[in-house]
Deep mutational scan, measured.
Amino acid sequence: MIINNLKLIREKKKISQSELAALLEVSRQTINGIEKNKYNASLQLALKIAYYLNTPLEDIFQWQ
């Protein structure tokens, strides 16, 4: 199981879903879906999320 901390980290950094989506060149709905565990981010997208949030990938998506 993967624990998804994207919403928590994004909100801590005061970045909206729309802002993050624009940086990543995806839709806001994609970010929303990832945060609600409706969609799994591809490895490429997960790495981009970590880069733009300046946060280690394993802090955003944790295996349990």
Results as ranks from 00 to 15, higher is better:
residue 31 I to R: 01
residue 2 I to E: 05
residue 31 I to T: 01
residue 58 E to V: 09
residue 24 L to H: 00
residue 47 L to W: 08
residue 37 N to M: 09
residue 50 A to G: 04
residue 34 I to D: 01
residue 32 N to A: 15
residue 16 S to W: 06
residue 5 N to E: 03
residue 12 K to G: 12
residue 36 K to W: 07
residue 63 W to V: 07
residue 44 Q to V: 11
residue 50 A to P: 00
residue 17 Q to F: 03
residue 30 T to A: 08
residue 29 Q to K: 14
residue 56 P to F: 05
residue 62 Q to N: 07
residue 43 L to R: 13
residue 41 A to K: 02
residue 36 K to L: 13
residue 20 L to M: 05
residue 19 E to M: 11
residue 20 L to F: 06
residue 53 L to W: 03
residue 39 Y to S: 08
residue 18 S to V: 11
residue 6 L to H: 01
residue 15 I to F: 08
residue 19 E to F: 08
residue 14 K to R: 12
residue 42 S to R: 05
residue 39 Y to I: 15
residue 35 E to V: 02
residue 18 S to A: 14
residue 31 I to W: 01
residue 50 A to I: 03
residue 48 K to P: 00
residue 56 P to D: 07
residue 56 P to L: 05
residue 11 E to L: 12
residue 58 E to S: 13
residue 16 S to H: 05
residue 57 L to N: 03
residue 39 Y to C: 14
residue 13 K to F: 11
residue 15 I to L: 12
residue 42 S to I: 04
residue 49 I to P: 00
residue 46 A to M: 14
residue 21 A to P: 00
residue 60 I to A: 02
residue 13 K to W: 07
residue 1 M to W: 09
residue 6 L to S: 00
residue 61 F to C: 05
residue 6 L to K: 01
residue 47 L to C: 15
residue 64 Q to A: 14
residue 21 A to I: 03
residue 14 K to I: 04
residue 55 T to V: 11
residue 30 T to W: 11
residue 21 A to M: 03
residue 22 A to H: 11
residue 15 I to C: 06
residue 27 S to W: 04
residue 30 T to Y: 15
residue 9 I to Q: 04
residue 4 N to R: 03
residue 34 I to V: 05
residue 8 L to M: 13
residue 18 S to W: 11
residue 23 L to G: 09
residue 26 V to F: 02
residue 2 I to R: 09
residue 59 D to Q: 13
residue 19 E to C: 08
residue 33 G to A: 15
residue 22 A to R: 14
residue 21 A to E: 01
residue 25 E to I: 06
residue 57 L to P: 04
residue 63 W to Q: 05
residue 52 Y to V: 15
residue 46 A to E: 02
residue 50 A to S: 11
residue 62 Q to C: 11
residue 3 I to F: 10
residue 45 L to C: 05
residue 3 I to R: 10
residue 17 Q to P: 04
residue 53 L to R: 01
residue 58 E to N: 12
residue 63 W to G: 05
residue 42 S to N: 09
residue 55 T to S: 08
residue 7 K to T: 07
residue 37 N to H: 10
residue 45 L to V: 06
residue 25 E to A: 12
residue 52 Y to S: 05
residue 62 Q to W: 09
residue 54 N to D: 15
residue 46 A to P: 00
residue 26 V to K: 01
residue 44 Q to R: 13
residue 24 L to M: 07
residue 31 I to G: 00
residue 59 D to H: 11
residue 54 N to H: 10
residue 17 Q to V: 13
residue 49 I to N: 00
residue 1 M to C: 14
residue 21 A to D: 00
residue 46 A to D: 00
residue 49 I to V: 05
residue 42 S to C: 06
residue 4 N to D: 02
residue 4 N to S: 04
residue 37 N to P: 01
residue 37 N to L: 07
residue 31 I to K: 01
residue 16 S to R: 07
residue 21 A to Q: 01
residue 12 K to Y: 10
residue 43 L to G: 05
residue 63 W to C: 10
residue 11 E to P: 01
residue 48 K to L: 08
residue 6 L to F: 00
residue 50 A to R: 03
residue 26 V to D: 00
residue 35 E to P: 02
residue 27 S to Q: 05
residue 31 I to M: 04
residue 30 T to K: 08
residue 24 L to T: 12
residue 7 K to Q: 12
residue 29 Q to M: 10
residue 58 E to R: 12
residue 11 E to I: 12
residue 57 L to E: 01
residue 39 Y to V: 15
residue 50 A to T: 03
residue 44 Q to P: 12
residue 27 S to T: 10
residue 19 E to Q: 14
residue 54 N to A: 12
residue 14 K to Y: 06
residue 1 M to H: 10
residue 61 F to E: 01
residue 38 K to F: 12
residue 23 L to R: 09
residue 10 R to H: 03
residue 47 L to P: 00
residue 8 L to I: 14
residue 14 K to Q: 12
residue 44 Q to A: 14
residue 38 K to C: 14
residue 29 Q to P: 06
residue 12 K to A: 15
residue 8 L to G: 10
residue 54 N to V: 06
residue 56 P to M: 04
residue 12 K to H: 10
residue 40 N to C: 15
residue 53 L to C: 02
residue 18 S to R: 14
residue 22 A to Q: 12
residue 59 D to L: 11
residue 2 I to V: 13
residue 47 L to T: 12
residue 41 A to Q: 02
residue 34 I to C: 03
residue 37 N to K: 09
residue 40 N to H: 14
residue 58 E to K: 12
residue 62 Q to Y: 09
residue 62 Q to F: 09
residue 58 E to P: 08
residue 23 L to N: 08
residue 53 L to N: 00
residue 37 N to C: 12
residue 1 M to G: 08
residue 36 K to V: 09
residue 28 R to T: 15
residue 7 K to D: 03
residue 26 V to L: 05
residue 55 T to Y: 05
residue 37 N to F: 08
residue 9 I to A: 07
residue 16 S to K: 09
residue 63 W to M: 07
residue 9 I to T: 05
residue 9 I to R: 02
residue 25 E to M: 13
residue 51 Y to V: 08
residue 17 Q to E: 04
residue 47 L to R: 13
residue 6 L to C: 08
residue 21 A to L: 02
residue 20 L to E: 00
residue 60 I to G: 02
residue 36 K to M: 14
residue 22 A to M: 12
residue 63 W to R: 06
residue 17 Q to N: 02
residue 36 K to N: 15
residue 38 K to N: 09
residue 40 N to W: 10
residue 41 A to Y: 05
residue 1 M to V: 11
residue 57 L to Y: 06
residue 64 Q to V: 12
residue 19 E to V: 09
residue 33 G to V: 07
residue 14 K to A: 10
residue 9 I to E: 04
residue 49 I to K: 00
residue 62 Q to L: 08
residue 29 Q to Y: 10
residue 13 K to E: 06
residue 14 K to F: 08
residue 1 M to S: 08
residue 55 T to P: 01
residue 28 R to M: 12
residue 33 G to L: 15
residue 25 E to H: 15
residue 14 K to D: 08
residue 12 K to L: 13
residue 51 Y to G: 06
residue 46 A to C: 14
residue 51 Y to K: 10
residue 41 A to S: 06
residue 23 L to K: 11
residue 37 N to A: 07
residue 36 K to I: 11
residue 48 K to F: 04
residue 11 E to Q: 13
residue 50 A to M: 04
residue 29 Q to T: 12
residue 21 A to K: 02
residue 39 Y to Q: 12
residue 31 I to P: 00
residue 51 Y to S: 08
residue 24 L to F: 01
residue 27 S to C: 07
residue 9 I to S: 02
residue 46 A to Y: 13
residue 4 N to H: 04
residue 43 L to Y: 14
residue 20 L to H: 00
residue 47 L to G: 07
residue 3 I to H: 08
residue 54 N to Y: 05
residue 30 T to C: 15
residue 15 I to H: 02
residue 7 K to R: 14
residue 64 Q to E: 14
residue 40 N to T: 15
residue 52 Y to E: 05
residue 29 Q to I: 09
residue 49 I to E: 00
residue 50 A to C: 06
residue 59 D to E: 14
residue 52 Y to P: 00
residue 41 A to I: 15
residue 6 L to M: 09
residue 41 A to N: 02
residue 21 A to F: 03
residue 12 K to I: 10
residue 20 L to R: 00
residue 57 L to I: 12
residue 58 E to T: 11
residue 37 N to Y: 07
residue 59 D to Y: 09
residue 45 L to G: 00
residue 12 K to M: 14
residue 31 I to N: 00
residue 42 S to T: 12
residue 59 D to P: 02
residue 62 Q to V: 14
residue 16 S to I: 04
residue 33 G to I: 07
residue 18 S to C: 13
residue 31 I to E: 01
residue 14 K to P: 02
residue 11 E to C: 11
residue 10 R to N: 01
residue 18 S to T: 12
residue 51 Y to A: 09
residue 55 T to M: 07
residue 63 W to E: 04
residue 62 Q to P: 12
residue 42 S to L: 03
residue 9 I to Y: 09
residue 14 K to E: 08
residue 56 P to T: 05
